[in-house]
Nucleic acid binder design. Sequence first.
DNA 1: AATCACGGCAACCGCCATTCA
DNA 2: GTGAATGGCGGTTGCCGTGAT
Length: 274
Amino acid sequence: MGRQPCCDKVGVKRGPWTIEEDHKLINFIVNNGIHCWRKVPNLAGLVRCGKSCRLRWINYLRPDLKRGGFTEMEENQIIQLHSLLGNRWSKIAAHFPGRTDNEIKNHWNTRIKKRLKLLGLDPMTKKPIEQKEHFDDEENNKTNQHPNTSKGSQENVELKSLDNNNGTEKMTKTKDKIEETKNKVTCDTELHNYDIQSSKVELRSWISQENNTSVSSYCSSSFSIDDSSYPCVGQSPYFQGNSLQQWVDNMDSILLWDNFNLLDEDFIFLENKE
DNA sequence: AATCACGGCAACCGCCATTCA
DNA sequence: GTGAATGGCGGTTGCCGTGAT
């Protein structure tokens, strides 16, 4: 038979996380690591769905998260990567250690899109808006115009909805696969070139960010994270030795700061750091 | 001071590929 | 081999803070 159900959604708490819940989750993961998200809520004493715990950890509690706004350099990198990868936020986020896909996606939707529009550029194609025939129909253009969207083209979706025949669906999926493979080859080559071209810039940018002692960067700058350690948090090197205690201390101060906005604590933290 | 509108972001939803019994 | 659970991802929603009126 199959596996056990993820969680019974009845009686599961939803909405914003409290400090207590955050502490419980952090303590549990620090002490036990993550072996199965489904078991995390019960073992950690949380009334949450495992999926919700995972999301909270990845997007907010992870020790190597960068906090604070994106630099112009980062924004430009996002724009470049988006033109190569489309809305594949997790792939884009992989190029930004300490940033989450959710964070980049939000930043794109709230800031970068507007910035590009103000510059008279279409966020999806990065071409001047005048060159496009039907800019108003942005949602359709999203999937049609970009060759690298992850969920397949709008054309395929329409084909599926128009024709319920299974054979057609299989053909469409095969077509998708072929397109995907073609795109991947092109995309990987482009990304490789991009990585080579931008690696020096990125390195310089990150080094300058690491040296920049700001409130927004205190979480990331205290740790030496091996990115390849994901997702085996339990065995991760960033929970070893002093780093663990440092991180727990930092999380405490972040959580307090988030809730009460005690600026004094922040200054104390920065002083201690130096 | 009160109300409204808007923007930002955390969290949820639903789908899909992978894994497992 | 099959079907169900899990993990991951992208799209979307809704809450909350802030600025404008």
